[in-house]
Amino acid sequence: MSISFLAKHPVPCSLFLLGILVLGHGAYIQAKAYLAQFLIAQAWQQTLDDQQIHKPWHWADTYPVAKLSFVTKQESIGFKHQVESVYVLAGASGRTLAFGPGLVLSGAPIGEVGNTVIAGHRDTHFANLAAVNKGDLLQVEAKNGEILLYQVVNTQIAHQSDTQFMAPSDDNRLTLITCYPFNQLSGGAEQRYIVEALHVNKPAAI
């Protein structure tokens, strides 16, 4: 693209270059998020081995607390595990969510009675929440190696100011939160997509 062309067409060229920058920034964020999951996976394996906290890199201010897998309901063959799994980190600050879904520390700890809340970005680790339906299963691996099964009972869209879905509960439930809509490229979303699931010993027909 020559300088003379830029001078003759300043607006289209500016928009084109801006688009490249936006897409490049988005690709960088996704690459950082998924690369971090490899390092987090190593730290998680160490935690499973010795039940101790292990940071994924020495300067990290968080650490993995669980492994979350999505299970899709298949009418013909029962329940089938998806390939994708994500590692959940302690805390849900913006810096933590850049590397993976974060456990909201004001909620119930993994596997305990109460409302366990996990937040994640819609364009990386929680992008697949768009495909989660009522009746699907969520599998959580705790740090002691126990596999916990949750069945989705509800999905909803709420305003960011509505925090009732994060309230404590008397049952054992898992709440996943991400920004909405999923296909919005820019930040600043005021809506949240919420997946609510209850702990089950055996999947129920829904």
Rank of each mutant, 00 (worst) to 15 (best):
T124Q: 12
S85P: 01
Q82W: 04
N133P: 00
I29Q: 13
V195H: 03
H25R: 14
D61Q: 14
H54Q: 05
E146N: 04
G114F: 09
V132E: 03
N128I: 14
S169L: 12
P101S: 07
G91E: 00
G111K: 07
A33L: 02
K143I: 05
L129H: 05
E84W: 06
G91D: 04
S93A: 01
H159C: 12
L68H: 08
I194S: 03
P56V: 00
A205Q: 06
L17H: 14
V65Q: 11
A98G: 03
L17D: 08
F126P: 13
V153S: 07
P181W: 07
H159D: 11
R122C: 00
H125L: 10
V153E: 11
V140Q: 02
L185C: 02
L103H: 15
L103S: 15
T47I: 03
N144G: 06
L48G: 08
I40F: 07
P168L: 11
V11C: 01
G188V: 00
K202H: 12
H58F: 06
I20D: 04
I147V: 13
A142M: 08
V152C: 01
K134G: 02
F99T: 07
Q156V: 00
Q151H: 05
A167D: 14
H58A: 09
L21K: 12
P10V: 13
A119E: 13
G120P: 14
A108T: 09
H199I: 04
G135P: 08
S106Y: 07
N133T: 04
H54Y: 03
L176E: 07
N172P: 04
N133W: 04
A92M: 02
Q45Y: 06
G120W: 11
A36N: 10
E190A: 14
G111I: 08
I194N: 01
G107A: 14
D123A: 01
D170C: 00
V132K: 07
I157S: 04
P101Q: 05
S169T: 15
G91K: 01
Q30K: 15
V88M: 12
S161I: 04
G102A: 11
I20T: 13
D61P: 00
A167H: 14
W57N: 09
Q191A: 07
Y87Q: 07
C13Q: 14
L48M: 00
D162H: 10
T62C: 04
N133G: 06
H58M: 06
D49N: 13
V71E: 04
V71C: 05
H54A: 05
A92D: 12
M166Q: 15
W57F: 12
P101M: 02
L15P: 07
G100E: 02
H9M: 15
S186K: 01
R192H: 12
A60W: 05
N154I: 00
H199T: 10
F126T: 02
N201C: 07
L17T: 02
V200L: 09
L185D: 03
S4C: 08
L6C: 15
P109A: 08
G24F: 08
L149V: 01
A27W: 08
G145L: 04
K80T: 01
S14V: 08
N128L: 15
G94K: 03
D61S: 11
G19C: 09
A27F: 12
K8R: 15
F182I: 09
